[in-house]
Amino acid sequence: MDYNPMELMICCAARLLEDGRTVAVGTGAPCAAAMLAQRTTAPNLVILFEAGGVAPLLPTMPISVGDSRTFYRGVMATSMADIMETCQRGMIDYTFLGGAQIDPYGNLNSTMIGPDYARPKVRLPGSGGANDLASFCWRTLVMTHHDRRRFVEKLDFLTTPGYLTGPGAREAAGLPPGTGPYRVITNLAILGFDDETKRMRVESLHPGVSWEQVQAATSFPLTARQPLAITPPPTERELHLLRTEVDPHRYIIGRPC
């Protein structure tokens, strides 16, 4: 069955979410992944939105992390501090983030592009809740387009912590132990982090993608898990649910990743 890269990325992300767990999501592809997971392998996945929505039965894709869809038929509509403190207490298993740049340790930049902080070449929104969620949630998942401008050795600005400078750096900084980036899902591959070095490594290549292609789209040297797997393509059932129930208007799956 034919599928586009965004559909594959959403399916990959959905499969990583285990049943009975909690996930803090934003709008867009991560929300689609969580909704798909609920309809496939994780019917008891609890979705939370940082503006205060808890366990909604999402009728449509939210446009804003704070719009009324984010608590539609939910179990609670609460405050941002309550959600963030639930994360800080260690109750939230996953979060999804993105950014304009990502480095080998999974650190993210969503603040600015350029050499001078006070006079940015491009001013981006900033942390929002990303820095908090990546600090608090057990496993951070990143969904992003894969190219050399995004995958850089050094960020223009370290907005959100991955493994910072390597093994032990998060703990030394005071971040809660046992947390950190887990998987990076791109249009080319699924990447993880080497246990020893905490640097990014390829876990699986998407169907039809070569190792050389992935390395060429990355500005820093990658390693690979051996033997290197091929990402299973979306199943017919996944695609059907994604296209008919999760995103029937193709807001997410209809746009380039």
């Binding site: 900033g126 600090s135 960020l155 370290l158 959100t160 900084a173 005071g174 809660p176």
Partner: peptide, 8 residues
Amino acid sequence: RSLLGTDT
């Protein structure tokens, strides 16, 4: 317990 270790 956030903010720590970052340019933010």
